[in-house]
């Protein structure tokens, strides 16, 4: 009786202390994460805005996209023109979520990971760089870039 009470108190405590922002689970298959995060449906237009935005996604700091009106695109990552033809949505999703799963030495930041990071600035602590919905939006945009 008493033990059961303690056990249920412990369970309550565990539930209370579980991070409110626990990330949506995903399953890796080969070099891809085939299922959309949290079953969310990506929006191409929102994804494009995230990719071009200079604070949140800021993809253009390293990558080039086929957007002639965007000056100062980076040269560090691979160009993204035609990336939707080179990779399927599951492969794109994995590379956004945590490219380190494929290449531990990658410079590509993990956009959907909160553990294993060090000295994260307070404003960015315990939350991923992009939410599950935002990952799906960016996947939708990148999948649309089919012309090399």
């Amino acid at each position: 009786m008493r033990l059961a009470a303690i056990r249920s108190a412990l369970i309550m405590l565990a539930l209370a202390s579980a991070p409110a922002s626990a990330l949506e689970a995903y399953k890796v298959v080969g070099d891809a994460i085939p299922a959309p995060l949290g079953g969310k449906i990506g929006d191409l237009k929102r994804g494009r805005a995230l990719v071009l935005d200079r604070t949140q996604g800021n993809c253009l700091i390293c990558h080039q996209v086929p957007e002639p009106n965007e000056p100062f695109q980076g040269t560090i990552g691979p160009g993204l023109a035609g990336v939707g033809a080179r990779l399927d949505t599951g492969q794109l999703r994995l590379r956004l979520i945590d490219a380190g799963l494929l290449n531990p030495q990658t410079v590509m930041p993990p956009y959907f990971r909160i553990e294993g990071l060090r000295d994260v600035a307070p404003a960015f602590r315990d939350r991923p760089a992009l939410t599950a919905q935002e990952i799906e939006d960016v996947v939708a945009y990148l999948a649309s870039l089919r012309t090399p």
């Binding site: 253009l60 700091i61 390293c62 000056p71 100062f72 695109q73 980076g74 040269t75 560090i76 380190g100 410079v107 930041p109 993990p110 990971r113 990071l117 060090r118 000295d119 994260v120 600035a121 960015f124 602590r125 760089a129």
Partner: peptide, 25 residues
Amino acid sequence: ERRQGQLNLACTQCHDGLVGQKLRG
């Protein structure tokens, strides 16, 4: 040499490995 921050980058990754590349402009 150690990775840090939400973007998980070490100084050496850019300042040894990617010198001369463009980060934006």
